[in-house]
Design a protein around this nucleic acid. Structure first.
Lengths: 216, 216, 216, 216
DNA sequence: TATGAATGAGTATTCATTCAT
DNA sequence: TATGAATGAATACTCATTCAT
């Protein structure tokens, strides 16, 4: 089999083992761009550089692509934040700041918010995917965060808040910032400005919006 | 002929005036429950209590239903919050608290979050609807909120923050709370607990998560 | 009931008896312009100045409109030519010329070719209409024409031709001229030029295309 | 696996190369038999021996079938008559006779009149098809016929007639004969009798209907 | 493995016809 | 008579999935 044989593919054919991943990449792109329903399997195939029939060699159905997509994304995302939060000592605000800045950085990467966005969009069609994401990602990360907050409270760093609800206060502003940007195209004049958002958010988060009354 | 007679009786029921609204109600229900693509026009018709053909008397296409839905929702939502925020005097934190609690209460009503949820889900298919929502709702409300924050800063109530980004800090936690609940079925053990969320959120928002160092 | 009552109709409401005819006029117009299948009953109603439902007061179905159309057209057309051809004496070529010129004139009137054109177009859907037209129009006229030719032969005016087939030679050129004009938009540079066609046609018809060999 | 196996056996038959042509054959049959509007794409598919979906592999729409039909028919028809008329020498009446008899024979073949009949019927829906037929067929053939007539006149074989209008006199009787037969089921007692028609027509065409006055 | 022709279930939309008013 | 809102059968077209090669 000569070089000519590779005519219509990418420069060189990837090892077959990478195929399912290429299909998932293509599917993710298109599901994000056009939604699940409006994406044709043939589009995915073409974008992945193989034929419609071949997609079915790797995934038994279009729905299986969705599941595969989430399944693939779940593990690395979960471990990502855990390593940041586990085993930190001292002032938990430092850990929160650092982790949040790291997470915010990651989330600005379209490939990484893609999965939760996809789930948010298609949750009515695929409720089991939301559940999987919850179990594999959220329920791994949130308890760690809660533990951190609890420790912060116990050690006198943090006000005695409800840790579970406080997670919303920590992450919510970033989530809303991204939604406004992605869904409604509303960003500050200088773009996504994630750094400025984080500065502003962390300042308020830790020290509050109220101006300390000086002359007390 | 009594009222009961109209229940499901004759083949032809006559113009109800409210028909378009009934159709939109049905469409909203189903679009939320199943998504736009998976909802059949016939389902909408049945749910609205009329025939498939009749839907087309009021709306020229399935897409027009989506547009009609957003268009109908846009005006009242916008005016809702504006009346809360305009013309308030004194400590803006009181206005923010009151408005936020009101908004949070409204958003717990499924009919009201329905539209933004729908837009978030279908934005790739109907980007113009997101834009309409932005113009008619978000760009009406947000500047008022920004104005309030600016006044609060000027009058010495609030820390000198970036008002535009601070809006994310004010509303974000509520948004995330709702997303976790609606999309991922993650609520506190006692349910949506919106009141507790608001208490916790406002405490942090205004006074910060950090415990004031007393004995310093 | 005052003048005001007539608001939305034509200047004054026609006598009700004329209604069916108005409906047929409208139907003919539209069937010719758009074809039977592509014409909506509502279009006919609107063009006739009444409501969709009212059409069904006069005609039980859309197909009945077609039938009514042909039925109405049949009688006058038939009698038209008959009066020209019956009881003429002397050289039948004069009668043929006169009648043909008259017929050609009539056929240039869009309202009059409309019916045969309509039948030609819709014959597969309504074969019984073609049959009706044949019985009521063609089989009335053609025998008279044949009789005329036969007399012309017997009296030594005409060559001994097949009268039935000769009818095609007499009328065919006009038919083709109209088809080329109507269907394929092919007319001489100066328009339909029906007079010139008739002159040319009759010259050939009676005296032949061949140049008489003079010097014989 | 024998030829018989393809009769109607497996669910999937494989690319026959001739598929588009088979689909057009089926479409022509049905369009002629039932008209364009009354023919369902599924009927065409069944008649062509494949599935509805497969039709759309070859033609993007039902209308494209019409266009394909005319496009396919156009070239051979045009060249057909041209070869008859071009380059003939001597008495043009011989060429006219021969060509006309040939054309008449062809037109008696249902497959060949099918296209012009179809165009005549559907011209209001598809005016561009009539135009295509005019350009590709009529405007190819008619000028050649006109040239032949002009030569006949110049060489003293024919009377000085208008060549463009004379084409109607040459072809019209055949056209009308076919219309009477096809549309109105009016044929001579012995059937279509095309030969007798041609004899009668050509006799009149060349020598006229008038009996030469012998005793002159 | 890989292809892509073929299948056929599924759905938005149209429009003749009905009927309450 | 007259209206036009309402009905629902009918149909073009799409696309996930299959399978002969």
């Amino acid at each position: 089999m000569s070089e000519q044989d590779n005519q219509r593919g990418p420069k060189f054919r990837r090892r077959a083992e990478a195929r399912p991943d290429e299909v998932l990449d293509a599917a993710l792109d298109l599901f994000i761009t056009k939604g699940f329903a409006a994406t044709r399997v043939e589009d995915i195939a073409r974008q992945a550089g193989l034929s419609k029939g071949a997609v079915y060699l790797y995934f038994p159905s279009k729905e299986a692509l969705m599941e595969g997509l989430v399944r693939r994304a779940v593990a690395p995302i979960a471990s990502l934040a855990l390593h940041q939060l586990e085993g930190v000592e001292g002032d938990p605000r430092l850990a929160i700041s650092a982790t949040l800045r790291m997470v915010a950085g990651k989330l600005a990467d379209p490939r990484l918010i893609a999965i939760p966005r996809l789930i948010m969009r298609e949750v009515v069609q695929f409720p089991e995917l939301a559940e999987m994401y919850r179990k594999e990602v959220l329920e791994q990360i949130i308890p760690v965060a809660i533990g951190l907050i609890n420790r912060g409270i116990a050690e006198g760093y943090l006000r005695p808040v409800d840790p579970e609800l406080t997670v919303r206060s920590i992450v919510g502003p970033i989530a809303l910032h991204l939604i406004l940007a992605e869904v409604f195209r509303m960003t500050p004049a200088d773009g996504l400005a994630m750094d400025r958002l984080m500065d502003n958010h962390l300042a308020i988060l830790f020290d509050g919006l109220s101006l300390p009354e000086r002359a007390k």
